[in-house]
Amino acid sequence: MTQGIGIFRALAFVILAASLIGFAAYAGLVSSYALPDEDLSADGIVVLTGDQGRLTAGARLLQDGRSAHLLISGVHASVTTEQLRAHTTLSNEQFTCCVELGRQASDTVGNARETAQWVRTNGYRRLIIVTSDYHLPRSLIEMDMAMPDVEFIAYPVRTTPPWRNPRSARLWLQEYAKYATVRLGRILLPSQDTAS
């Protein structure tokens, strides 16, 4: 009985240590994403809906001429086009000519599939992916799995680090668990999609 408890404790310690090391590596990866150079351009900009700041960042990239095409992926059915336009601060003309709304995606896997369809329709080869910094690692994996021949440029929307805010810590830990699952799935099943 005592030996069994000792083995269980040792196993629990190994799992905890591995999780802490993994999270530290994940946090380092998130922190390593830098904003692209000012002269960088792409065929399209993709904004993944979610945290505040993503739409503003995507609209700014469009206004700065980084691309003439913007996809907002994962738009909820209850959100109107006018509500979205107001959040982007784009003019009616800019929004009408250059922004496409994707309403099919409900998770990160769906974002990747929705983006892949947009890419196939338009023949794009280089995309700027705009999402929260902590969401970028998993988003880029899913995008690469859906579109292995497309180049992705990470554009991080900065969030509060987990060591400064308990709410951020919860978000980052939840996202790390999803990221670790997707990453492990890609290692074990590289030719298959992993669930979000």
Rank of each mutant, 00 (worst) to 15 (best):
A154G: 08
Y26T: 00
S196A: 11
A34N: 13
A12M: 08
L40W: 12
G53Y: 04
S31R: 10
D107G: 04
A42I: 06
G4P: 13
M143H: 02
L29I: 14
V79W: 12
F152M: 04
R183S: 09
L127N: 00
D193G: 14
R113W: 04
Y134K: 03
R158P: 14
A177W: 11
I128T: 07
M147P: 06
N165T: 03
G53T: 03
Y155A: 06
V130Q: 02
R164W: 12
Y176T: 04
A68Q: 11
L84I: 07
R170I: 11
R54Q: 07
G4V: 13
M143K: 00
A154W: 03
E151A: 03
L84C: 03
G4F: 15
A180Q: 09
N92G: 11
I72D: 06
Q63W: 10
E93A: 07
A12W: 05
Q94W: 06
P162K: 04
P161N: 03
D193K: 14
P190V: 00
A59I: 08
Y26H: 03
L40T: 14
H135G: 01
T115D: 01
A195D: 14
A68C: 10
N111I: 02
D107S: 06
A18V: 10
N122C: 07
V119H: 01
M145D: 10
W118I: 00
A27W: 15
V79Q: 10
G185Q: 03
A195W: 13
V47M: 09
A34S: 13
F152Q: 02
V109M: 15
R125L: 07
V130Y: 01
R120N: 01
R167P: 08
A17H: 10
T89K: 15
A177G: 10
R167E: 13
C98G: 06
